[in-house]
Write a protein that binds this DNA or RNA. Structure first.
Lengths: 195, 195
DNA sequence: CACTTTGATGTCAGTTACTGACATCGACGC
DNA sequence: GCGTCGATGTCAGTAACTGACATCAAAGTG
C-alpha cells in the first residue's frame, strides 16, 4: 500500500460532483472538495487545472473513441456517414452510464461557467473530428462543416436523451436527429447563392 | 457636463481591448483597465460582470438584429431560408467594422477563457433563434437543428472572412458555406435509420 | 433659493480561485 | 542501508470579484 490512499483523481472527481450537486457549484469551495476527499486544496490543483475541469476528465477518452470510430469507417463511406459511425460509438458508452450522465448534466446545466467549459470541450471535439476527416482525404472546408454538423447532431440527441421520461436509446435519437438535419438542409427552395 | 467623463462603458471597453491586445488577456489586470479609463476597479465591475464580458457587450444587439431578420422573413420561407435572411443581416454590420472585428477576434482566439465566453454567446444566440423560428410555427425539433445549423454556418464563414488575405464579403462566404453544408448533408448514401 | 433625493462613482475590507517555492516522507531501485 | 523520486503538504502571495458604506454633482421640489 502506498503512502496515500489510491485513486486520488477519481476521489476528487466524485467528491466534486457530489458537492456541486448538493450545494451548487458556486457555493462549493475547492478546499471543501479536497477536504471531502481527504486531501488539500493544493493537491486538487495539481490534478485539475481549475475548479471546472474536474467534471470533464472524460473528454479525452470520448474524443479518442469518437475519432477512432470515424477513422475506422470504410474508406468508401461519405464524410457524413463516417461521422454517423463515430456517433454510434460514443452513444454506446453514454448508454452504459446514464445515471452518472444525468447527474453530471444536471450540475453542468445549472451553472453558466460549467456550460462554457462544456461548449469548449465540444468545440475541441469538433476540431479533432475535422482533423480526422481530413486525414481520410476529405477537403478541409467539407471536413469542418461535417464535424460541426456531427457535434450539433449529438448535442440535440443528448438533450433529448437526458430528459427524465425518455426511454429510447441515445444512438436511435442521434440517427433521428441526423435524418432531421438532412431534411432541414433540403428545406430551402434554392441554394443561397441564387437568392 | 456631468460630474464624470461620459461614455464610461465604452471607455472601459476600448481600454480593455487595447490592453488585451498589447499585453495579452491574462497579463492585464482589471485595475489596469480601469486606471487606463480613468476609473476604479470597482466601477469596472459595476459595468461588466467579469473581466471577459467587456469584450462581448455587442452580443445583445447582434442577437436582436439576427432574430428580427429571421422573424421578418416572408412567412412562406422555409426555416433554413429564414435563417439565411438573418445571416445576411448580421453579415452587413460585421462588414462595416472589419478592422474592429479582426482586432477583437485576434484577442479572443488567443485565450481559451475568451473562446469559452464566445461559444456561450453563440449558444445563447442559437437558443434565441430557436425561439424565433418556433414563433414562426416551425416545429421545435426542426427549429433547434435549423438554428444550430445557421450558427455553425456563420462560424465557418466568419473564420474564413477574418483571415488577412480574404477579400470576399462575409455575406458571400456565408452563402457558400450554407450551400456546402447542404451538400454535406446530402452526401450520405442512406438515412442513418436504415444503416 | 435652500433642501432632498438620486445615481454614478470611490473606498475599503473580505472571500476565494489559483500559483510558486520549498518541505516532507514512503516507495523503489541499487 | 541509502539515495533518488514522486506525490503530497505547507505557506505566502496575486488578482478576480463582492458587499457595505461614503461622496458629491445634478436634477427635482417646495
Amino acid at each position: 500500500m502506498g503512502r496515500w490512499e489510491p485513486n486520488t483523481r477519481e476521489r476528487l472527481a466524485k467528491a466534486a460532483l457530489d458537492l456541486y450537486g448538493e450545494r451548487g457549484f458556486e457555493q462549493t469551495t475547492v478546499a471543501e472538495i479536497a477536504k471531502s476527499a481527504g486531501l488539500t486544496e493544493r493537491t486538487f490543483f495539481r490534478h485539475y487545472a481549475d475548479k471546472r475541469e474536474v467534471l470533464f476528465s472524460g473528454a479525452i477518452e470520448l474524443e479518442q473513441l469518437f475519432t477512432r470510430a470515424v477513422a475506422g469507417a470504410p474508406p468508401s463511406a461519405a464524410p457524413i456517414d463516417a461521422m454517423a459511425a463515430g456517433l454510434d460509438a460514443i452513444c454506446a458508452v453514454f448508454e452504459e452510464r446514464r445515471d452518472f450522465a444525468r447527474k453530471r448534466q444536471a450540475v453542468i446545466s445549472a451553472t453558466a461557467e460549467l456550460r462554457e467549459r462544456e461548449l469548449i470541450k465540444l468545440a475541441s471535439l469538433a476540431a479533432a473530428l475535422t482533423d480526422t476527416l481530413r486525414a481520410r482525404g476529405v477537403p478541409p472546408s467539407v471536413a469542418g462543416l461535417t464535424a460541426e454538423t456531427g457535434v450539433a447532431v449529438f448535442k440535440v440527441a443528448f438533450e433529448r436523451w437526458i430528459v427524465a421520461d425518455e426511454t429510447r436509446p441515445l444512438a436511435r435519437l442521434a440517427r433521428e436527429s441526423l435524418d432531421e438535419l438532412k431534411a432541414v438542409a433540403l428545406g430551402g427552395n434554392a441554394p443561397m447563392s441564387e437568392v
